[in-house]
Simulated assay, not measured.
Amino acid sequence: MKRFQHFVPNLTLGAPVIKSLRKHTKAYLDCHLMVTNPLDYVEPLGDAGASGFTFHVEVSKENWQELVKKVKSKGMKPGVALRPGTPIEEVYPLVEGENPVEMVLVMTVEPGFGGQKFMPETMEKVCVLRAKYPSLDIEVDGGLGPSTIDMAASAGANCIVAGSSVFGSPEPAQVILHMRKSVEEVQSSS
């Protein structure tokens, strides 16, 4: 039996859940892998029907080219994530490389657990990415909700991950609608 080391101590959803969901939806199933060995997950998640595969730059500096090729070969969109303390320059080679990632995920909290407070200082990374790569998908994850969405959208994020603010709300559909509207308004004015 192979043991997996994780970048964070919890694993929320795996390939069996993705496979079960895929049977019932054509929705984009975005997988953010906070693990030290993302290469081990490409085949199971690709076979399960995942749409996107985002790995952390902090654990993939040695093999990201191989990882991106394998992700694409399984029909998934490759993305790279970085923690709040990781310099933005570390993702440039992955965006500009011969076989580039198609999305950058800027973590707006330390990875691992939901319900953390949004770190506004991470929006500078989003601004830098948007200016440098105008057509790149830029995702933000952590502490996003009605009170922080405008800041993320204005910085240039066009993909939003929201957990606690949606699932902890008595009206989750309204929270989603509010956040979607904020992103769409910024994009339409750009």
Rank of each mutant, 00 (worst) to 15 (best):
T36K: 14
P16S: 00
P84W: 02
H32L: 15
M76V: 06
P100E: 00
V35H: 14
V140M: 03
I88A: 01
S51H: 12
V80G: 11
N37I: 08
K69I: 02
N99A: 12
N99E: 13
G49W: 07
G114W: 12
K23F: 01
A131R: 15
P44W: 10
P111M: 03
G142S: 06
V106G: 00
K69N: 04
W64Y: 15
L39M: 13
K19Q: 05
E102C: 04
E96F: 15
G52S: 14
T122K: 01
E139K: 00
G52L: 07
L82S: 10
L21I: 15
A48L: 09
A50F: 10
P120K: 14
E90H: 13
I18M: 09
G46A: 03
K74P: 04
V128L: 04
S51Y: 11
Y28S: 06
T25A: 07
L136I: 05
L144F: 04
H56Q: 08
Y41E: 06
K77Q: 04
V59A: 14
T108V: 05
K125M: 01
Y41N: 01
M34G: 12
E121N: 10
P87F: 00
M103E: 08
P78F: 12
E89R: 08
D137T: 11
A50Q: 02
I88M: 03
H24L: 12
T54F: 11
N99I: 09
P111F: 03
R83N: 14
D40Q: 13
G52V: 05
I18R: 04
S73V: 05
